[in-house]
Deep mutational scan, measured.
Amino acid sequence: EPEARKIVEKLINNGLSPEDVKRWAEKNNNPEVKKAAEEYQKR
């Protein structure tokens, strides 16, 4: 999901860690963003 990846990169560029992004995604019920954050961590 390229859109989710863009969101993850934007949040990380704004100073969030991938863990923060995953928590944000869970709080906002956004499994695509959570998955993208996990993939981002593996890179």
Score class of each variant (00 low, 15 high):
E19S: 07
K6M: 12
Q41F: 10
N28M: 12
G15Q: 05
A4E: 03
K42V: 09
E38C: 09
G15L: 05
E19K: 05
N14L: 15
N29K: 09
K22Y: 10
R5D: 09
Y40F: 10
W24R: 03
A36N: 02
K10R: 14
A36L: 13
L11A: 05
A25W: 04
E9F: 01
S17R: 05
P31L: 11
R5Q: 11
N30Q: 14
P31K: 07
W24S: 03
P2Q: 15
I12Y: 04
D20F: 05
R23Q: 10
L16Y: 13
R23L: 11
E1T: 13
R43F: 13
I7E: 02
R23T: 06
K22L: 15
E26T: 02
N13T: 09
A4Y: 08
E38S: 03
I12E: 02
A4L: 06
K35S: 08
K35G: 04
K35N: 07
N28W: 09
R43L: 15
W24I: 06
E9L: 06
I12D: 01
D20G: 06
A37W: 06
R5F: 08
A36E: 10
G15H: 05
E1P: 13
V21E: 03
R23H: 11
R43Y: 13
G15K: 03
N30W: 15
E3Q: 11
K27M: 14
A25L: 04
N14F: 10
N29W: 03
K34F: 14
L11P: 00
E9K: 08
N30A: 14
V8D: 00
V33F: 04
K34H: 12
N14H: 13
P18K: 04
A25Q: 01
E1F: 13
Y40H: 07
E26G: 00
V21F: 01
L11H: 03
N30V: 11
I12T: 02
V33Y: 03
E26Q: 03
N28F: 10
A25H: 00
V21A: 04
R43K: 13
E3R: 09
N29A: 09
D20Q: 11
P2S: 15
G15W: 03
E39H: 05
K35Q: 10
K22P: 04
D20I: 04
